[in-house]
Write a protein that binds this DNA or RNA. Structure first.
Length: 407
DNA sequence: CCTCCACAGGAAGCGCAGGAGT
DNA sequence: ACTCCTGCGCTTCCTGTGGAGG
């Protein structure tokens, strides 16, 4: 009989898989000391009961924004006795000012009702709690009557719908508090155009301290990976060259550390499932393929209907073995846009959908190409006329499956 | 060389949805 | 509640392009 202990002990690869998760916050963040320091300087005043600066962080995915900010919050934890409380909000989940306040209140008051309160009430509750006005005049313990200082980290802040009112409300809170307690904000976004969504007042209040996180380069990534892999894997599992390869790949993908970690994690899973002793370049390459395909299918599933139909048609064409009229230099099958359009139309017919015109079909081709799912070349010699030759970049069976699954 | 093929891709316009103005 | 406007997805029409075939 198999026991859970046996399963857990049979794991020869991972020591602590969690260290590769994007949510993992290490005690030490490499190459972000400067940024950490600036954030800590901005927030340090609250330890003495003064108002800290609001911070806005901008940077591409996987540049350490969230990890750095969370680490700063962790470093504030020991000051709980000074009345300092921190809150982490993922705005993908808490995407309105109501939800944000609601979440904070449900964290500080355990029996707080999930809904049914007006926004004003939530706001007053929060102000009350920060001021910590002793309602039962509990003078026996004056230490319990200190005003509180809270820091709210708003991750992916650009996803908040009523962003202006959220920022306005939260920054205004400090005025309503009359220096009995403070509220500081840290906003994180990876969109360049984020600021244009805000009005000028909100920008100036949110961006009292502004940080831009530069992407990591390959050398930095490999240091970071080495460190994380030391925690995540059992000793002598990961080859150094594998780490370097993952770093180089991630560096070319905008220096995305999250992607580098994902590669190592997938490589580890591969090694585990194949009972390997070591993780080598081969596993990383393999992991990259899997990650790429996952990504492609994620993109496909969110595509508009007719672009899916187009891809489905192209996939059925590629699957036909006998039709090998055109082949590119690596032996991949190419199809002219006319052929693909014809197939697309017959797929539409079969599925009972109306067809789009060929003009619009060409726009679809351009769209899908920009997403990297297909590649096109202009026809040269060997073919009459002037056309675009289309190549599917992924396994046709998998493309078909992901179209079917998502429709 | 001319013509035809098989498209590429610009321009104009159409119907509709959703937001602003009244 | 209503018009007006604008943007979007799309069709229709049209001119342009480069090689193939006669």
């Amino acid at each position: 009989m198999t026991t859970f202990e046996e399963i857990l002990n049979s794991n020869k690869i991972f020591e602590d898989r969690n260290a590769l998760s994007p949510h993992f916050v290490p005690d030490l963040l490499l190459y972000r000391e400067e940024e950490l320091k600036r954030m800590m300087v901005a927030l340090a005043p609250i330890i003495n009961g003064k108002k800290g600066k609001n911070i806005f962080i901008y940077g591409k995915t996987g540049s350490g924004k969230t990890s750095s900010a969370r680490l700063v919050l962790n470093r504030l934890e020991p000051y709980r006795s000074n009345g300092i409380y921190t809150f982490y909000m993922n705005c993908r989940v808490y995407d309105s000012r109501y939800k944000v306040l609601q979440k904070i209140l449900s964290e500080i008051k355990h029996n707080f009702a999930k809904s049914g309160h007006s926004f004003t009430l939530l706001y007053e509750e929060l102000v009350d709690w920060i001021e910590n006005n002793a309602k039962n005049s509990d003078h026996a313990n004056p230490a319990q009557n200190h005003a509180r200082h809270i820091v709210i980290l708003l991750d992916e802040i650009d996803l908040v719908g009523d962003l202006d009112s959220l920022v306005y409300t939260l920054t205004r809170t400090n005025d309503d508090l009359h220096l009995r307690g403070t509220l500081s904000l840290i906003g994180i976004s990876n969109r360049v155009n984020f600021k244009s969504k805000l009005d000028a007042r909100s920008i100036s209040s949110l961006c009292e301290e502004e940080l831009v996180f530069q992407p990591y380069n390959a050398t930095q990534l490999s240091q970071i990976l080495t460190e994380r892999c030391r925690i995540a894997f059992k000793p002598d599992i990961v080859q150094e060259s594998a780490i370097n390869l993952a770093s180089a790949i991630a560096a070319s993908e905008n220096g995305d550390a999250r992607y580098a970690l994902l590669l190592m994690s997938r490589a580890g899973e591969l090694a585990e499932s194949q009972n390997l002793q070591r993780i080598t370049d081969k596993e990383v390459e393999e992991a990259r393929k899997i990650a790429d395909e996952d990504k492609a299918f994620e993109i496909i599933s969110t595509l508009p209907e007719h672009q899916k139909l187009l891809l489905y048609g192209l996939a059925t064409l590629v699957e036909e073995i006998h039709y090998k009229r055109l082949i590119d230099e690596v032996g991949e099958k190419l199809y002219s846009s006319g052929e693909v359009y014809e197939r697309y139309c017959s797929v539409c017919k079969k599925w009972g959908k109306s067809t789009r015109s060929s003009r619009w079909f060409r726009e679809y081709i351009a769209d899908i190409e920009s997403l990297g799912i297909i590649q096109t070349v202009t026809s040269g010699k060997g073919l009459r006329g002037h056309t675009t030759l289309i190549k599917l970049c992924y396994d046709p069976a998998k493309v078909k499956a992901s179209v079917e699954k998502s429709s």
